[in-house]
Nucleic acid binder design. Structure first.
Length: 958
RNA sequence: CCGGAUGUGGCGAAAUUGGCAGACGCACUAGACUUAGGAUCUAGCGGAGUAAUCCAUGUAGGUUCGACCCCUAUCAUCCGGACCA
C-alpha cells in the first residue's frame, strides 16, 4: 500500500470537521491552557509560506498540551477591519464587506488544508457587528473613565464628577464647578477621560485621506504605502495611554517576552527623569507668559519665570551657553527683541516650509537668535536665547538649555554659530567634540567645583526646589494614541455631538452599525466618508432609536440639534481585546463573561511577529489594564509568554544590466554600480554557484514558469554550456517580488504533514530564515519511510503484535525523552530530526512492532496529525490518537552500566575507554594509568593531575 | 548615532549549556537493484595529507587541565529606535 497523502489528509480533515474534533468547552475539570496566534488581516493575496510558521508552531504546542491532559483553547479569527480593503474598494468599487468575506473564505480554506486544530465555532471577526458592538462598548468604558493619579488606576468618571461637585480640586472650588456651564464642565472632564477628544496636531496623510497614529508613521511617511505625512490641527479622538506609561513599564517585569521585545517597548515609552528649570528673561518686553504645559501635567505656572526648559542633566547648569526654544512656541513671539523680529519671523517661515520628510532627509544646522537673554539663577550669567528646528515643540517644555561641552547637538550648534563654549568637565572635553560623561569632577561651576557630576545633579535639584524655580520631572517620549481615522471601514464611534459636547450613545442600543455606502471618497473638510451619509449623521429619529440616551433631552437631529461622530476607530481597536472574545465568543449580553475570562485567564502562549512590538502589544496591554481596573476582568497583563516567530524571507535573483541598460549580463561584484533586473520566478532553477543556464531558462520559459526579461541576454560560454550568473538576495516575501511560494501548492504536492514538518525543520521558530523548497524532499522521504514501517508497497501490512525487545524500547524511550524536551522548549527543528533518527533506527532494526509504533504515533500527532491518525487506525485503534495516553518516559531503559569515556591528554582526545559507571576517582586513575595510549604519552613521567568528570570525560594533565 | 540580536561545511542547521565540533536534512560523489528512475538501498562527504597526524566555530587576545560556549577588544550582518535634550 502506498502513502497516498492527499487522500488521507482529505479524509481526516473531513472527519475532524464532521465530528467537531476540536470543539473546546469552557467547562472542564482539566487544567486550562490558552495558545493564541496573532490573528491575520485577511488580505486579498491569501497565505504565503511565511504566515503558517507561527500557526504550525502553536498548533503543535496546542496538540501537545492536549495530549498532556490540558483543556486547550486554540482559536483563530480575523482582523478584518482596515485600510487595504477600503483602498481596494476605492479602486474597484467592490464593497469592503464583500471582499473581506471572500478573503476570509480563502484564508480559512488555506488554513484548513494545513490541518490546524482550531475550534472554528469560536472564530471572531473584528468587522462583525456582533463583535464590534463590544469594541464600541469598551470604548464607552474608556470614555467614561479617568486615571486617578493617587490610586494609579482607572476609575469611573462619575466619581470625579462627584468630587468636583462636592470638593472641587486644586484649580477650582466646588462652587465654581457648579457654576460652570455644561460645556465648560465637559471640557474639563474631557481632559481626564481615558478616551478623549481634543484639537491637536495629528499626522495627516493626504494620500490616504486619514490621520495616522505615531507608530503608523515611519520616517515621516505612512507605514502603509509610504505616502508623505504632514502635521495638521484637527479634532481627534485619543487614548490616554501616557497615563499608563509607568504601569506598562512595570508590567514588562511580570511577563515572559524576549528581552529585545521588552526593550523596544521601553524605548517606545521612552521614560526619562530630569528637571524642569525656569529662567528669568531679560532684554525682552514681557510680563507673564502662559505656555502650554506638556501633556499629562497639571498647568504649571511660575510667576516671573517665563522660560522653562526640560533637562535630564541639571548638574550641567553652569555649562549652559545658550538656550534653544522650539520656533512654534508662542513664547518666541513675546520675547523676540525689536532688532531680531525680522530675522526671527523669517526663520519661522522657513521652518514652516519644511516638512518632516525634508527635515529627516537633510539635517542642517539652522537657527536664529531671538535677542532675548535668560539669566542663570546660580551665577547670574546672561544666556542668549535662540530658536531652532532641532528642538521639538511636542516634547518636554519645547525648550532646552544647551550645554555644548556635554551634548553633541548643542556642540555642533555652538560651533556653527560661533557661540563660546564653557568647559565644565575639564580634561573630558577636548574642544573638538562633546562628551556626555557623568563621571567628571565639575569645573567652572561655582559652588559645585570639584563635585562629581552624578552627585551634583541632586544638589542642584534640591536648590532649585528650595528656590522654587524648578522641580523634578519625568517625561515620556510616548504620546497619547490617536484613536480616530477619517475612514469608512472601521468601527463607528458611538458618540453624538451636540453644541461641542460629546454624548455617548446608550449602551443598550449598540452596536451602532456601519451604514452601507456606495462611495468611499472623503467627506467635507477632512471628515471621513461617513460624513457624506447625511441621514445617518443626522437621522430624524428621536431617542432611543437614535441611540441617544433617553434623558439627554435633546431635540431630534432633524431639528439640527446634533450629529454623529463621523470618523471611525483605527485598526488596533478590534485587535486590542480579541483574545478575550475567544473565551466567550457568542455572548450577546457582555463582551466576555467574567466566569469565562476567569477560567481561561491569561493567554499562556502568544505567538506572532515582531512587527507588532509597539503597536498592537502596547494597546492590548493598555486595554487589559483598564478592563482590570474597572473590575471587568481579573488580570492586568494579557499575555504571559510571547514567542516571536522569525520572518521567512523569499529568495530573489537579479541579473545585471550593462551601461546602456539594454542588455542583460552576468552579475558581478566589480560592476556593483550597474542597475539590476529581477528574474521573475525561477529561484528553483539557479544552481548553487548562482549560475542560470540558457537551456534551463528556455525550458522554464516554455513551461510558463519564468517570465522572460525584455532585454537581450548576453550569455557566457564555457564549452557547450551557455549561462549567466545571477545574484541571490533574501527579501521579505511579496507577490510583487516574485518570490512567493504558496502553501496550497506545497500541500498538494507533498502533503500537509510534510509541509508542517518541513516548516519546523527549517530552523528555530524565532529565527528569520530564507525560504527554500529544496529540503522539503528529505522530510517527505521521512514520512514515506515511516509509512513503510506499517505498510509495504508489495506485501501490504507489515506491522505485528510481537513484543518489543529492550533494544527497541530503548530507541522509543530515547525518542520520547527527546521529543518531550524539545517540544517543551519550542525546539521543533531538533524534534523533527529526532523523529528522523528514530525512524531510521527502527528501520535498521527491522522493528515493525505495534507496541513500539503506537508510541511513536502519539509523539508524532502534534507534528503530522493526518498520517498519525491514519496509522493509528490502521493499527486497529479506536478514537483519536489525540486522546491517547502520552507515553511515559522510562529512564531505567536508558541507564547503562558502562560508558565509553574519551580520554584526553592536556585537553586533546587520545583514546576511548569503556568504564563502569560506579567507579570512584581513585579506581579510574589506576585504570587510566594502565592504558597503553596514556602510558605512551606519559613516557614514564607521572601525570600532574587526572580529571575525571563522571558521565563526561577523563583528562590527563601532563 | 543609540539600543538589541547573530556570526559554525557548498546550504538549512546541531552540540546534554565548559567535556570527542558539524547530529539530522539538502546538495554532491561512488556503487547496488532496475528497461528506466526524479523510487529504494549501501558507502563517502569541513580543509590539508598516502598515512599517522595537523589545522578549523568572523578576527585578535585572555581565563581554564580543557572554550562554539565565559571575559576583553575588534570587524561583519540583520532587526528596532533615531533630532526626545
Amino acid at each position: 500500500m502506498e502513502y497516498k497523502f492527499n487522500e488521507i489528509e482529505k479524509k481526516w480533515q473531513d472527519h475532524w470537521k464532521a465530528s467537531k474534533a476540536y470543539k473546546v468547552s469552557n467547562d472542564s475539570d482539566k487544567p486550562k491552557y490558552y495558545v493564541l496566534d496573532m490573528f491575520p488581516y485577511p488580505s486579498g493575496s491569501g497565505l504565503h509560506v511565511g504566515h503558517p510558521l507561527g500557526y504550525i508552531a502553536s498548533d503543535i504546542y496546542s496538540r501537545y498540551k492536549r495530549l498532556k491532559g490540558f483543556n486547550v483553547l486554540h482559536p483563530m479569527g480575523f482582523d478584518s477591519f482596515g485600510l487595504p480593503a477600503e483602498q481596494y474598494a476605492l479602486e474597484t468599487g467592490q464593497h469592503p464587506a464583500e471582499t473581506t468575506k471572500k478573503n476570509i473564505a480563502t484564508f480559512k480554506s488555506q488554513l484548513d488544508k494545513i490541518g490546524f486544530c482550531y475550534d472554528w465555532e469560536r472564530e471572531v471577526q473584528t468587522s462583525d457587528p456582533n463583535y464590534y458592538k463590544w469594541t464600541q462598548w469598551i470604548f464607552l468604558q474608556l470614555y467614561n473613565s479617568y486615571f486617578c493619579n493617587t490610586q494609579k488606576k482607572a476609575l469611573p468618571i462619575s466619581l470625579l464628577v462627584k468630587k468636583y461637585e462636592t470638593k472641587g480640586c486644586n484649580t477650582f472650588t466646588a462652587e465654581e464647578w457648579n457654576g460652570y456651564s455644561k460645556l465648560q464642565q465637559e471640557e474639563i472632564l474631557m481632559n481626564r477621560r481615558l478616551a478623549f477628544s481634543k484639537f491637536g496636531e495629528v499626522n495627516w496623510c493626504e494620500a490616504l485621506g486619514t490621520v495616522l497614529a505615531n507608530d503608523e508613521v515611519v520616517n515621516g511617511v505612512s507605514e502603509r504605502g509610504g505616502h508623505p505625512v504632514e502635521k495638521k490641527k484637527m479634532r481627534q479622538w485619543y487614548l490616554r495611554i501616557t497615563a499608563y506609561a509607568d504601569r506598562l513599564l512595570e508590567g514588562l517585569e511580570t511577563v515572559d517576552f524576549s528581552e529585545s521585545m521588552k526593550e523596544m517597548q521601553r524605548n517606545w515609552i521612552g521614560k526619562s527623569q530630569g528637571a524642569e528649570i525656569s529662567f528669568d528673561i531679560v532684554n525682552g518686553e514681557l510680563s507673564m507668559v502662559n505656555y502650554e504645559p506638556s501633556d499629562n501635567t497639571a498647568p504649571f505656572t511660575i510667576d516671573h519665570s517665563p522660560l522653562t526648559v526640560y533637562t535630564t542633566r541639571p548638574d550641567t547648569i553652569f555649562g549652559v551657553d545658550f538656550m534653544v526654544v522650539a520656533p512654534e512656541l508662542e513664547l518666541v513671539q513675546q520675547i523676540k527683541s525689536a532688532e531680531q523680529t525680522a530675522a526671527v519671523d523669517e526663520y519661522i517661515a522657513y521652518v514652516k516650509s519644511r516638512s518632516d520628510v525634508d527635515r529627516m532627509a537633510e539635517k542642517k544646522i539652522t537657527g536664529c537668535f531671538t535677542g532675548a537673554y535668560a539669566v542663570n539663577p546660580f551665577d547670574g550669567k546672561q544666556i542668549p536665547i535662540w530658536i531652532s528646528e532641532y528642538v521639538l515643540a511636542g516634547y518636554g517644555t519645547g525648550a532646552i538649555m544647551a550645554v555644548p561641552c556635554g551634548d553633541e547637538r548643542d556642540f555642533k550648534f555652538a560651533q556653527h554659530f560661533n557661540i563660546p563654549i564653557t568647559n565644565i568637565i575639564g580634561s573630558y572635553f577636548d574642544g573638538t567634540a562633546a562628551n556626555p560623561t557623568k563621571e567628571a569632577l565639575l569645573e567652572n561651576s561655582g559652588f559645585l567645583n570639584g563635585v562629581k557630576m552624578t552627585e551634583a545633579a541632586e544638589i542642584i535639584l534640591q536648590q532649585l526646589e528650595e528656590k522654587g524655580i524648578g522641580k523634578r520631572k519625568v517625561n515620556y517620549r510616548m504620546r497619547d494614541a490617536g484613536f480616530s481615522r477619517q475612514r469608512y471601514w472601521g468601527e463607528p464611534f458611538p458618540i453624538i455631538w451636540n453644541e461641542g459636547i460629546a454624548i455617548p450613545q446608550d449602551a443598550a442600543t449598540l452596536p451602532l452599525e456601519l451604514p452601507h455606502v456606495d462611495k468611499y471618497g472623503p467627506g467635507p473638510s477632512g471628515e471621513g466618508p461617513l460624513a457624506n451619509i447625511t441621514d445617518w449623521v443626522q437621522p430624524g429619529d428621536l431617542p432611543p432609536a437614535s441611540g441617544l440616551p433617553p434623558a439627554s433631552g435633546l431635540p431630534p437631529a432633524s431639528a439640527g440639534g446634533w450629529k454623529r461622530e463621523t470618523s471611525t476607530m483605527p485598526g488596533y481597536a478590534g485587535s486590542s481585546w480579541y483574545f478575550l472574545r475567544y473565551m466567550d465568543p457568542n455572548n450577546a449580553n457582555t463582551f466576555c463573561d467574567r466566569k469565562a475570562s476567569d477560567y481561561w485567564n491569561q493567554v499562556d502562549l502568544y505567538i506572532g511577529g515582531t512587527e507588532h512590538a509597539v503597536g498592537h502589544l502596547l494597546y492590548s496591554r493598555l486595554w487589559t489594564k483598564v478592563l482590570y481596573d474597572l473590575g471587568l476582568i481579573g488580570y492586568d497583563e494579557p499575555f504571559k509568554k510571547l514567542v516571536n516567530q522569525g520572518m521567512i524571507t523569499g529568495k530573489s535573483f537579479f541579473f545585471m544590466l550593462d551601461n546602456g541598460g539594454n542588455k542583460i549580463i552576468s552579475y558581478s561584484k566589480e560592476n556593483a554600480a550597474n542597475t539590476t533586473v529581477r528574474l521573475k520566478y525561477g529561484h528553483q532553477f539557479v544552481d548553487n554557484s548562482g549560475k542560470l543556464t540558457k537551456k534551463n531558462l528556455e525550458k522554464q520559459i516554455a513551461d510558463g514558469l519564468i517570465e522572460l526579461p525584455r532585454q537581450e541576454i548576453v550569455w557566457e560560454k564555457e564549452g557547450d554550456e551557455e549561462f549567466v550568473f545571477v545574484k541571490e538576495e533574501s527579501e521579505k516575501m511579496s507577490k510583487s517580488k516574485f518570490n512567493v511560494d504558496n502553501p496550497d501548492e506545497l500541500c498538494d504536492k507533498y502533503g500537509a504533514d510534510t509541509f508542517r514538518m518541513y516548516e519546523m525543520f527549517l530552523g528555530p521558530v524565532e529565527a528569520s530564515k530564507p525560504w527554500d523548497t529544496k529540503g522539503i524532499e528529505g522530510v517527505h522521504r521521512f514520512l514515506r519511510k515511516l509509512w513503510r514501517l506499517f505498510n509495504d508497497e508489495l506485501k501490504g501490512k507489515v506491522w505485528t503484535d510481537e513484543k518489543a525487545t529492550d533494544a527497541e524500547l530503548k530507541i522509543v524511550h530515547r525518542t520520547i525523552k527527546k521529543i518531550e524536551e524539545d517540544t517543551e522548549k519550542f525546539s521543533f527543528n531538533t524534534a523533527v530530526s529526532a523523529f528522523m533518527i528514530c525512524v531510521n533506527d527502527l528501520f535498521d532494526a527491522r522493528c515493525y512492532k505495534k507496541e513500539v509504533l503506537e508510541k511513536i504515533l502519539i509523539l508524532l500527532v502534534p507534528y503530522a496529525p493526518h498520517i498519525a491518525e491514519e496509522l493509528w487506525h490502521q493499527l486497529g485503534n479506536e478514537g483519536s490518537v489525540l486522546d491517547a495516553q502520552y507515553p511515559v518516559f522510562n529512564p531505567a531503559l536508558l541507564v547503562e552500566s558502562t560508558k565509553e569515556y574519551p580520554i584526553s591528554i592536556n585537553g586533546k582526545v587520545r583514546a576511548n575507554l569503556s568504564l563502569s559507571l560506579d567507579l570512584d576517582q581513585k579506581q579510574v586513575e589506576e585504570i587510566v594509568l594502565q592504558n597503553d595510549v596514556v602510558i605512551k604519552w606519559l613516557e614514564g613521567k607521572a601525570p600532574k593531575k587526572i580529571i575525571y568528570v563522571k558521565n563526561k570525560m577523563i583528562n590527563v594533565v601532563v
